[in-house]
Design a protein around this nucleic acid. Sequence first.
DNA 1: CACTCGATGTTCT
DNA 2: GAACATCGAGTGG
Length: 215
Amino acid sequence: MSKTKPPRETIFHTERDWGNLPPLPRKFYLQPTVAVARELLGRVLIHHQPLGLTAGLIVETEAYLANDPGCHAYRGRTPRNDPMFGEPGSIYVYQIYGVHYCLNLVTQPEGVPEAVLIRALEPLAGLELMRRRRGRTLLKDLCSGPAKLTGALGIDLTHNRGDATRPPLWVASDARRDGEVAAGRRIGLGSHQGAQAPLRFVLAANPFLSRRLRD
DNA sequence: CACTCGATGTTCT
DNA sequence: GAACATCGAGTGG
């Protein structure tokens, strides 16, 4: 009669020296945005602050393209989306519904507003700090959503225009967990053109996704 | 467990 | 007025 069994604590051991993992280089973010979204899966996002180090395995991403009605920059440059026009590998954080923050990594050359939204992490390191920030104890509740993970890692608007190819906030280049990648439609978009496009990517069957892949 | 609903407060149309 | 979300409360299987 067992229900769903609780997720494993971690894939990697938390004792690993996460703070010294070298970052992905800028040229990684110059690949086609869809390729970046897929290649980020299974890699480790790290935030190393004085308060402590937090890190998680990227298990869910979404691609946002320049000619894409779902993209913040689709109707042109505004104060909010301006960081999307920055150099590849830079950071775009936006506030949603006035209360939460979402992290994007900019792809493409300067002036081309494309980015990958990081939608969910499997918590790896700094779990107690994450629990404190989130006010939750269950591992599953720490980073299983775009605004949950920014809360858990302590990411906000001050990170805008930052450089994700070096500390304090970066994606590691050498640690990667392989797994089957599945694609589906993006979350939360209206019914406009583009809402049906398979631009959401997940590590299949991972227990830390923001939502199951539907259809 | 699955689904619904309302409230939250900023940015842009 | 809607939007790349989350939480808690409520209902129902």
